Computed example of a mutant assay.
Amino acid sequence: MNLAEIPLFAMLRDRLGHLSERQRVIAQNVANAETAGYVAQDVKPFAVQAQLHGARGAPTLMAATQAGHMHPKSERRLSTVAVKAVAAPGSETTLNGNAVVLEEEMMKMSEARMNYDAAIGFYQKSMNILRTAARAPSR
């Protein structure tokens, strides 16, 4: 079985992609901290509910009524997250129109890094659970 077909791993992959993009956008903000007229950007927060539901608000998977039910391949969804940067001006704007506050950007970067580390840890623990489940019982 492909790990991308397991909803938990697909969501974790989407989350990691979102956090990577957020780190890229924040680094771009820091790089433009002295650029006249530059407005800081950020990405929209990762919405778990948006991952569980399709674009029309309907669930993307049929409801499993018993623990042993598996979804057909036609209904398993792969990564469809589109991360888009939006303007997020800082709390201050300089005389030249720059709206990047380095302290705020460093806090955002720190938060994104902690969330990324947590998602990687969760991914690793989930992989360990799968490995344990797939291992032959010891005698």
Rank of each mutant, 00 (worst) to 15 (best):
A47G: 14
M107N: 02
A33V: 11
F122M: 15
I120G: 03
A119Y: 02
M127A: 14
Y116S: 05
L95D: 09
M62T: 08
A50K: 13
V83Y: 11
R131Q: 10
S91N: 02
S126F: 02
N128V: 08
G57N: 06
L130V: 15
N98E: 04
A119M: 08
A33C: 05
H69F: 06
D14F: 04
T93V: 14
R76N: 08
G17H: 05
P45N: 12
A36I: 07
A133C: 05
A119W: 04
I129W: 08
S126V: 03
L16C: 02
R135Q: 12
G57V: 07
R76I: 03
S74V: 09
G54I: 06
A87M: 09
K44P: 02
I129P: 05
F46E: 13
L61H: 14
L12H: 03
A4K: 04
F122R: 14
K108W: 05
A85F: 07
Q51S: 11
A133K: 03
N98F: 03
A133V: 07
K125S: 14
E21S: 09
A134M: 12
K125Q: 15
D42K: 08
Y38Q: 08
P59F: 04
A136M: 02
V81Q: 12
A63R: 12
L16W: 10
E92R: 13
V83Q: 10
A82V: 15
E111F: 04
A50P: 01
V83F: 09
K108Y: 03
A31K: 08
V81S: 05
A85H: 09
L78H: 06
Q124D: 12
P89Q: 01
E103C: 05
Q124T: 14
E21V: 09
H69M: 12
A119D: 01
G68M: 05
Q124C: 02
I26H: 02
T65A: 10
S20R: 10
E5S: 13
L102Y: 06
